[in-house]
Nucleic acid binder design. Structure first.
Lengths: 357, 357
DNA sequence: AAAGCCGATGAAACCGGTTTCTGTAACCGG
DNA sequence: CCGGTTACAGAAACCGGTTTCATCGGCTTT
């Protein structure tokens, strides 16, 4: 059961394959009668040309690669879905990989995409985990590929590539300021692994907010986690059983927030009654459940759209200069915190709002 | 900045491209000295052959297509991630599409995968929505492709393809029986769109459980939704304000469960105190939060693994006969319901257990 | 009527690989 | 010294397309 090829069509129509090709690509160049004869046969045989052969011949590529750490994390899931929908509309074909935050899989995925000769790449690197060496190898591969690439969510400064990032510093800074403005002098934080730039940024925001408010930082309230709910849960337990437990807590991503909430429930504590809390990242279920969840939305859809915009621009014009974009945090807060934040000028009305992105 | 090709290597090494190809694929056929010379140049130039050209030449395909309805739904997200990880290990390259439950996108995706000449396909059809006509066109395309395809999660009987499905009838049947066994004569149900086979199956289980228990079905307690949380929420509100509201409710997928819980919270009702509830599908956050959620797990990872197993078997041996597999429901219940269910022999110890799949 | 042009088509080269077929030189046994 | 292997490598065909270039018949143009 071999696939029909352009030769089969040409033969049956009694023309050369050049003519069939022309019917397919430049129909105006072929006589109407011939064209119809060929088209009839194409329809009859249900012929459809191979994109693989076509791409080879055109030295073009209609595929793009997507490398993300965890497809089933709602943050990346949303990003992936958005990207896939856009590629579709752009006539691009998405090939996607999941690294599980393992830098070796970064390499492996990049190699495959290089061999597959994708025309572009959207990439949320986990190579930072592996240290400078892994990052260097990834950069090397990226350069070898010689195709446009747009980083998303996670920055690797040396890469000198376009990127779309969340402004984690600003998020950490203002979230902390809001908590302080709400009267807390003891704000705890559960971060991700500080090997990751995005985790460091958010922590830096937290630290500088203290400084800006003239408040000393309490080192004992800083817990370095790894962005998983399990670790966050364990750290939160620890934090909540401190002799002087914090009056407010900032968690630095969705899973960390969940771990914290679990520890809270275990201790039969409630927020905001017993402890104030702001999380970074939206958590979709809470939305579905219409549950209040003070958080900083990261604009996932916006990030994905912007990334694709940068990528397609670079694909169309390879000379486009790399450009980095930072997506501003959007604060989704309960009435009390929102009032405080707006009054103190930490956020203005535009930046709040729960519209789900 | 053109990519290095096999010709460049051949030229620089002073050999023919046939020799370079042999170095790459059958190194034993080329003299050690020549081989090393070629290999050195390959390394120096960082050459890596084009899989596209290679596939064309071998009339092979190293890609597989994946079509699912909603990447960012945790059910499909998990499935996709599992599949992507397996393809990776198998040396296959995954191309994935999101249909958003729109049959037109089913068609579009299938056409692209056909043109891309994928070597296989994992497919969760949304064409049932579009009626027999859409299903017929999809089947046609699938046949045209002439490659192995494995349906997942959603069955379209006419397709005569391999498939891995959840035993929704059994889930509905036993879940309902458990609720009845717990003493409820008034079990409500919120289904998905009954245009979908999987929704009908689950409802059928509900109905037959009543019959098996000699209990009349109360038509007013059957609410046809569409598997979205929004609709489920609205229906649940309606259900909860019935003069004689049900003592127990079965919801038929994850989002439906969420919608129900939202309505419950709005009415300040709690489960199981005020109303008993079993949902079909796991909801990951509840797991993260260590929150009790009586549900029927669908074994997402198991489904994906099995699907890939069937697919790779068919790819390796195209004569493999289509085979359909039904994954058994796994009940994750609170102590009370579990005791009831086990005592009545509705589930046995093996089928319970909260191990997260 | 010769020159020039145009529209329609086929032949052939090409994309970047793999593989078959062929040729050559070295090696073997008799 | 000869016929037969064998090891190695190049030429050429092929995969399924696109595109350049050449050909040819018919139609203007002068």
């Amino acid at each position: 059961m071999k696939k029909t090829t352009i030769n089969d069509i040409a033969e049956e129509a009694g023309v050369s394959k050049a003519t069939v090709s022309r019917v397919l690509n430049h129909e105006e160049l072929v006589d109407e009668e011939t064209r119809n004869r060929v088209l009839d046969i194409i329809r009859k045989r249900r012929y459809s040309p191979s994109l693989v052969a076509r791409n080879l011949s055109n030295r073009a590529s209609n595929t793009i690669g997507i490398i993300i750490p965890e497809i089933d994390n709602s943050f990346y899931g949303k990003i992936l879905r958005t990207i896939v929908n856009i590629t579709d509309a752009e006539g691009l074909i998405p090939i996607c990989f999941d690294t599980g935050n393992n830098p070796e899989k970064d390499m492996k995925s990049l190699r495959i995409l290089r061999d597959q000769r994708v025309g572009g790449l959207i990439y949320a690197p986990s190579v930072e985990h592996g240290g400078a060496d892994a990052a260097e190898r990834a950069k090397q591969l990226l350069d070898d590929m010689g195709v446009p690439a747009v980083l998303i969510d996670r920055n690797v400064p040396d890469f000198q590539r376009s990127g779309v990032f969340f402004d984690g510093f600003d998020a950490g800074y203002r979230a902390t300021k809001i908590l302080i403005a709400a009267g807390h002098t003891d704000v705890g934080i559960i971060t991700g692994s500080l090997k990751l730039g995005i985790a460091r940024e958010r922590l830096r925001g937290y630290l500088e907010a203290h400084e800006a408010c003239g408040l000393p930082v309490r080192r004992t309230l800083i817990f370095e986690g790894d962005f998983t709910s399990k670790t966050a849960y364990l750290l939160s337990r620890e934090m909540l059983s401190l002799p002087e437990r914090p009056g407010a807590v900032l968690t630095c991503n969705n899973d960390t927030g969940l771990g914290f909430l679990q520890a809270l429930a275990e201790r039969k504590l409630r927020t905001p009654r017993d402890i104030e809390h702001i999380g970074i990242d939206e958590i979709d279920v809470f939305d579905d459940l219409r549950m209040r969840y003070n958080h900083v939305a990261r604009g996932r859809v916006e990030m994905a759209q912007k990334a694709m915009k940068l990528l397609t621009a670079q694909i169309r014009n390879p000379d486009t200069r790399p450009e980095s974009v930072w997506i501003a945090p959007r604060f989704v807060l309960d009435a009390h915190l929102e009032r405080v934040a707006v009054r103190r000028g930490i956020i203005d009305k535009k930046q709040k709002g729960a519209s789900r992105l």
